[in-house]
Amino acid sequence: MEVLIYLIPIALFLGGAGLVAFLWSLRSGQYDDMEGPKWRILDDGDLQENSTPVEAAKRKVS
């Protein structure tokens, strides 16, 4: 059972890392807007003219 001496701190560390990650995301304002970001990924406005994702992919291939 001596292995517990290592395993429990490891388990606590992993859980603690999750907690720290959550607190960081909270502090950086990621929960301020729960509605907008899911739409932002669909916005193509930041692409160059005439470059739909498909065309951009084609250019990369050729």
Binding site: G16, L26, Y31
Partner: peptide, 16 residues
Amino acid sequence: KEILRALAVSGFAAMN
């Protein structure tokens, strides 16, 4: 944010 932080800490503790 205070409630959410307390909630996160107690959630972490409850699981472990």
